[in-house]
Design a protein around this nucleic acid. Structure first.
Lengths: 352, 352
DNA sequence: CTGAAAGCGCTAACAT
DNA sequence: ATGTTAGCGCTTTCAG
């Protein structure tokens, strides 16, 4: 390597020279272009060469300078995560996964907080795509099912990938079999002897609400139980709405012996409502939720729920997007497994 | 000018040719460099030339390409938020605030998850600063007080701004008077008649733990109460540690009538431990926390706690950093107000 | 006060 | 499968 380069000081700041692609190339004994190929996961590099280059990249902690790639290439190496702040915990996990995937492929992740259903949403995204020359877009619920947004993205020719999109909006992204998960949860409740099982549903705009409700009904059907409409109460995914919905259920002439809430927050609210009436969970009523957020083990008793591998979902959604960006048509839907978390909020049915 | 340029379509996506600085220069009858001078408000341009260039820029709606400026110049217009995933809710709020500030000043925000105390942390950050040519760094607890990291950043000459750094590490950033907040909280408990007040402290590495403990002691002192060492139990900011600490306190021969936990998660754990023993909050024991995270109104009874304006804190920390980047020495410490949230988990002291 | 030339670090197109 | 060469659009020398 040539003499140690020492950059001029910027605003009075001593600056050591960066590692450049050239340095990596030299150290690996290949040309710059080959390193570039490896970095960009392009074909036509032998496995041995690729491994060697990757090792040097790792050793030198080399990271391509975004500006240089953008300037030289025709891509921005920038993807945006569009989201509407649902739960902080969910969001941060999805984000960490996406970040991880993007970093591993030397892409930048731009965060774009949006308000679902707000007036200028589509225009805002459009301006963003044009100005920032986004290579692709990552969607999280409920933005995954905003018809106008999806249409515009398609018109603009911007690839996108989504997390838990509804059936008809799925092309590339990641999903979990929520329907199957709920069926399994219902089976668990039925096995415990429950016959009057209620459901606190989520906001209708969320695809998740639909699957969870459908899973609930299918669970009843499989157990040969009647679907009593009085046992389904609408919530909005919030603690408060779960609390209110549970009160509605408890006021019923024939209250349920088990409540399946469409998410953990609502389940936690339900537990609170039950305790306020001097009843006990699960002795009097079993409660279960969905998502396995931190609140699940911060309520008493700890919540039986369904766990989704949130971080992996973010990671996989991003990886599929990057595939799709590189080779349109290559990205697809990845189905990730759920896991029932049986905890102490569910137990044998009380005498009805 | 040469023939109309039409950018090649990237991955099948049409792109119109941009107006370049060269086009502006030609049309204004000056050199590229003169246009550059005007654009960057540099001296040594005659007023007439400046006006003429500005007119052409306006007419052609010319905007310099960020990547090109970054590549050629010495600034990256990029700052990084370094964080160690404590609570998702806290993090996302701080992040939203920082994002907002950066966007308003046309800076980019890069997210860097780190593990506090991990081996290669400093080297990792160093590589990042070098490779990404970061203009500055945003620190969140507990990274705000990592001595080795701060030292290295100083050596590298990278400006940084922090959220809630400990006293000695404060130069630019945002803080809230946690000490004062805790004193106020203690006053509230004392006013309710409590005389045996316990404290569940946080992990010693967090600056916040120190202030909250100090505030607790000062609160006792001001009320003329003795500081019984048995009433201070160490927690780790987690729900579980709060649960365990509360059990320790409840096992005391002389249990407290009130517990001030250093954060909401631990307070929630404490409430759970109290309920498990068949005691009631606040009738038997009052409990209060700190932070006003969502869990505060998701436990029963809802938690008395201290609210910090998290999003504003993120925003202000970023704004101070940007000031400091532009004019070293200009950034400073911003003190934001806290607010006591009195809810139902605190009440009159039970007969001791 | 102004301009010409030389890159910044990377990738695209074209060799080989 | 790999290398060579020529820029991307701007700023920074350094020379007028």
């Amino acid at each position: 390597m040539s003499a140690t380069r020492v950059g001029g000081d910027g605003v009075g700041r001593a600056r050591v020279a960066r590692v450049r692609i050239e340095d990596v190339a030299e150290k690996a004994g290949v040309s710059m272009k080959t390193v570039s190929r490896v970095l960009n996961h392009e074909p036509n590099v032998s496995d041995r060469t690729r491994k060697r280059v990757e090792a040097v990249v790792e050793k030198l902690r080399y990271r391509p300078l975004p500006s240089a790639r953008v300037l030289a290439g025709r891509r921005s190496y920038l993807v945006a995560m569009l989201f509407d702040n649902p739960s902080g915990n969910y969001l941060i996990e999805i984000q960490m996964g996406m970040l991880d995937a993007c970093q591993s492929q030397h892409y930048n992740l731009m965060l774009v907080p949006l308000v679902h259903g707000s007036k200028g949403l589509v225009a805002k995204v459009e301006a963003l795509v044009l100005q920032a020359q986004l290579d692709g877009v990552l969607l999280t619920p409920p933005l995954t099912d905003d018809a106008a947004l999806l249409r515009r993205l398609a018109e603009l020719g911007v690839p996108w990938s989504s997390v838990s999109a509804m059936e008809r909006n799925r092309k590339v992204g990641v999903v979990v079999d929520e329907f199957g998960a709920v069926c399994a949860m219902m089976k668990h409740l039925v096995a415990l002897g429950h016959r009057r099982i209620a459901h606190i549903s989520g906001h209708a705009a969320h695809g998740a609400s639909g699957w969870r409700l459908a899973g609930y009904r299918e669970g009843l059907r499989r157990a040969g139980l009647a679907d009593d409409p009085a046992l389904v109460v609408a919530g909005e995914f919030s603690y408060e709405s779960g609390h209110a919905a549970a009160n509605t259920l408890l006021d019923l002439a024939h209250p349920p012996t088990a409540i399946f809430a469409a998410n953990d927050d609502m389940a936690a609210g339900a537990i609170c409502a039950i305790c306020e009436r001097g009843l006990s969970v699960p002795a009097d009523i079993s409660v279960c939720g969905f998502d396995d957020t931190p609140i699940a083990h911060q309520v008493y008793p700890p919540l039986t729920t369904v766990r989704q591998p949130t971080r992996d979902m973010g990671r996989l959604a991003a990886l599929e997007l990057l595939k799709e960006i590189r080779e349109p048509g290559r990205g697809g839907i990845v189905d990730v497994p759920y896991a029932l978390q049986l905890r102490r909020s569910t137990g044998p049915a009380a005498r009805d």
